[in-house]
C-alpha cells in the first residue's frame, strides 16, 4: 500500500482567483518559508553527511611525508598521494580475508534472517484466528530488536561458553559433543546467529504489516477456487510483500557489510576474532590504533562504494526504485 499525495492544485487555485493582488503578495512573502522549515535539516545534512563524505574522499588521496628524522612539528607534512592509499588498502594481506569473511557472513545472515522473517510473518498471517498464540509469538520474536547489538553479543557470548551453555548440557544429555561456537571455525556462525537473532523480528514485523493490508476476501475467493494455503502464500502473499522484501533486503545488506559491534563485543570471550576480523574493524584499527587515517579513509571509501554498487545493483536487477517518490 502506498500513501499518495493528494493533488493540492485544484483546491488551492480556485478561491485564489478573485483576489489576485493580496495573494501574490502573501505568496511572495512565503517563498522563503519552505527553505526556513528545511534549514535545520539541510545544515545538519551538510555538516554530518555531506562534509564527512567529501572529507573522507579527500583524506583517502592524501598521505603524510616525513622529512629528516621525523622530529619536530615541521618534519611531518601532508602531501598528495594519488591512489597510493587505495592500492595499499587493496593489497593489504588482511583486507581480502576480512572482505571474504564478511561476504560469507552476509551469505549466511541475509537469506536466513529474511527467510525466517518471511516464514514467521506468513505463519502469523495464516493463523489470524489464534490471536493469543500469535500475539505472544509476535511480541517474543520482535523483542530482540529492543536489545542493543552489544548486549545481544554479550548474552550470546556467555551462552556460547561451554561451561555456561544449556545447549552443551542438551548435547551431553544425548551423548554428543556440542560444537564449540568460539573456535576458529565456529566464530562465523556465532556472530551470524547474533545478527539473525537480533534482526529477524524487525523484518518480520515489516513483512507482516504488508500482509495485513491485504483484505481477507482476496484469500477467501482463492480458497473457494480450490487453492491450498501453500499456493495462496506462494502465488498471492509473497508477490504482495515483494516491495517490503526488497527494502528489507537492501537495509539488511547495508547493515551486514558494516558489522562491527558484535565481533568487537565477542572479542574478549573469543580469542579467535582478530582486530581485522571485518573490514570495518580494520578501518577502526588503522585509524585509531595505527593513526593512519589516510588508508583508513581509503578503505572506508572502498566499503561504501561496494555497498552502493551492491544495493543499487540489486535494486536495478529487481527493477525497483528504492523509494516511492510519488511525484
Amino acid at each position: 500500500m502506498s500513501l499518495t499525495t493528494p493533488a493540492p492544485t485544484t483546491t488551492a487555485a480556485a478561491p485564489a482567483k478573485p483576489a489576485p493582488a493580496p495573494r501574490a503578495r502573501s505568496a511572495n512573502k512565503r517563498s522563503g518559508v519552505p527553505y526556513a522549515f528545511l534549514a535545520p535539516a539541510l545544515v545538519l545534512f551538510a555538516a554530518f553527511l555531506a562534509a564527512p563524505i567529501v572529507y573522507a574522499g579527500w583524506l583517502s588521496l592524501r598521505k603524510v611525508k616525513v622529512s629528516g628524522l621525523g622530529l619536530g612539528a615541521k618534519s611531518r607534512t601532508e602531501i598528495w598521494a594519488g591512489l597510493d592509499n587505495y592500492t595499499r588498502s587493496l593489497t593489504d594481506p588482511e583486507f581480502l580475508p576480512s572482505v571474504t569473511r564478511v561476504g560469507a557472513y552476509g551469505l549466511i545472515v541475509v537469506p536466513t534472517m529474511l527467510g525466517l522473517a518471511l516464514l514467521m510473518a506468513l505463519l502469523l498471517d495464516a493463523d489470524r484466528t489464534r490471536e493469543s498464540i500469535g500475539k505472544f509469538a509476535r511480541i517474543s520474536i520482535f523483542l530482540p530488536y529492543a536489545v542493543p547489538a552489544v548486549v545481544a553479543s554479550l548474552l550470546w557470548g556467555f551462552l556460547y561458553l561451554p561451561r555456561v551453555s544449556p545447549i552443551t548440557d542438551l548435547f551431553e544429555a544425548v551423548g554428543l559433543t556440542a560444537p564449540n561456537m568460539l573456535s576458529s571455525s565456529g566464530t562465523m556462525w556465532a556472530v551470524a546467529n547474533i545478527a539473525i537473532w537480533g534482526g529477524t523480528g524487525f523484518n518480520m514485523i515489516v513483512i507482516y504489516t504488508a500482509l495485513r493490508s491485504v483484505p481477507t476476501s482476496l484469500y477467501e475467493s482463492a480458497r473457494i477456487d480450490g487453492a491450498s494455503e501453500m499456493m495462496i502464500a506462494w502465488k498471492i502473499k509473497i508477490p504482495i510483500v515483494m516491495p517490503s522484501l526488497v527494502m528489507t533486503f537492501v537495509f539488511s545488506l547495508i547493515a551486514t557489510l558494516q558489522v562491527f559491534a558484535e565481533p568487537m563485543t565477542l572479542r574478549p570471550l573469543a580469542n579467535t576474532i582478530s582486530t581485522t576480523w571485518t573490514p570495518l574493524m580494520k578501518v577502526y584499527r588503522d585509524a585509531f590504533t595505527r593513526n593512519d587515517i589516510y588508508s583508513a579513509a581509503a578503505t572506508s571509501v572502498i566499503i561504501a562504494l561496494a555497498t552502493f554498487i551492491l544495493s543499487f545493483g540489486f535494486l536495478k536487477v529487481v527493477g525497483r526504485r528504492a523509494f516511492n517518490q510519488e511525484d
Binding site: 562534509a51 564527512p52 563524505i53 587515517i293 583508513a296 566499503i303 555497498t307 528504492a322
Partner: peptide, 10 residues
C-alpha cells in the same frame, strides 16, 4: 542508503 562506515572517521 549512505553506510555509516564512511561517516565515522571524518
Amino acid at each position: 542508503l549512505v553506510p555509516g562506515v564512511i561517516l565515522a572517521i571524518p
